[in-house]
């Protein structure tokens, strides 16, 4: 049944993934860029259009399925990972993508997010993180910075925010990556990496809400400061950042990391070489925590891509096959007459 690896007869184009529905996001919303990137990447994956399913919860981001000309399911708030798990269980051959937001995935649906990740269900999860509740018109979200003044927190929010990447790694997600709505090329590359991953692929996309949280990621996206604050991760390459690529991350003797200035005897060979494929999540967690430390950059790209763990839907179906191989296919008449029976004549 699986056609995932065969290229379609007529190559698909971006247009094949656009619907006739009017897109109802605010003009200038970061979601447009994400939609465009996904519509560009899907035709390149060599998967038939009918085998794509886009599942979402509730929120601005969750309108996504309506704009993708694939099978689509706009479910209820926070539950998209659970719905998608049911789809994958029955049809492991389908390519199922989940579109969600910071409120949807980390607040109301936090439980489903972590359980999907620990099970390693073969879903691609795009978490649109704009650090605000947009669709309900501007309340703070679980990723809003501390002391944020919003409609529901006029004197400042008191919650410590989640770091979605740390959370995903903490749940031992097998693929964790981050990109930014306005970095179109990087975003597309990241989505392709996610698509290539077998198990759960968790992608946080930093996204601007120009209405309720404009400049949500300004310190990262602003052209002048961008390279000072962002570190692009590449597997097997040293951790370098800075406008002039003159800063890097070095291991300390105690196992921690530090930011060092290149030069004065410090070269790239002294730096940590990025290993996204490490089986243990601790290194990726260390990277995910950098942005909370003064002077450290925010990492983007693939933090972790360890694909040696079986997908949940595969082990589920394999267990059934194994039982059938051992017992033979079930016989209903026999089942109904199992156990102690007696005959009345």
């Amino acid at each position: 049944m699986s056609t995932a690896t065969l290229p379609p007869i007529t190559p698909l184009t971006k247009k094949d993934f656009q619907t006739d529905q009017e897109v109802r996001w605010c003009p200038g919303c970061g979601d447009y860029a994400i939609l465009s990137a996904v519509q560009s990447v899907f035709p390149e994956l060599g998967i038939k259009r009918e085998n794509f399913v886009v599942v979402s919860g509730i929120g601005c981001s969750s309108r996504f399925p309506y704009y993708m000309n694939t099978f689509g399911f706009h479910t209820i708030h926070g539950r998209a990972p659970a719905v998608a798990t049911g789809i994958k269980a029955i049809r492991p051959d389908l390519e199922v993508w989940v579109a969600t937001g910071d409120g949807d995935a980390l607040s109301i649906g936090g439980n489903h997010t972590i359980h999907m990740l620990r099970r390693n269900v073969g879903l691609k999860v795009l978490l649109f993180n704009n650090r605000i509740y947009g669709l309900t018109k501007g309340q703070y979200s679980p990723t809003s910075e501390f002391n944020k003044k919003t409609k529901s927190s006029p004197f400042g929010s008191l919650d410590r925010p989640f770091n979605p990447i740390s959370l995903a790694i903490g749940a031992e997600a097998t693929f964790v990556a981050r990109s930014v709505d306005v970095f179109q090329q990087h975003l597309k590359e990241t989505l392709k990496h996610a698509a290539a991953h077998k198990g759960s692929a968790f992608v946080e996309i930093l996204q601007n809400c120009n209405i309720f949280n404009d400049g949500a990621w300004f310190n990262l996206t602003e052209r002048d400061a961008r390279s000072e604050h962002i570190m692009q991760l590449e597997h097997d390459k040293p951790l370098v950042f800075g406008k002039n690529r003159d800063k890097g991350i070095r291991r300390k003797a105690d196992g921690d990391i530090e930011v060092v200035q290149l030069g004065n005897g410090i070269t790239e060979s002294d730096l940590v070489v990025h290993d996204a494929h490490h089986p243990r999540p601790s290194y990726a967690f260390l990277l995910s925590h950098m942005e909370h430390r003064p002077g450290f950059p925010t990492p983007i790209g693939v933090l972790r891509a360890w694909d040696d763990h079986p997908r949940y839907e595969d082990v589920m179906n394999q267990q059934i096959k194994d039982v059938i191989a051992k017992r033979g296919p079930g016989d209903l008449a026999k089942l109904l007459r199992a156990g102690d029976t007696w005959e009345v004549k």
Partner: peptide
């Protein structure tokens, strides 16, 4: 009853129990 192809999913909560069923 896996020999009947029955798929049982012990979900993380009651909500995931029904929503996974809706997905299935």
């Amino acid at each position: 009853y896996k020999d009947f192809g029955v798929m049982t999913f012990q979900a993380e909560d009651e909500i995931a129990a029904i929503t996974s069923a809706i997905g299935a």
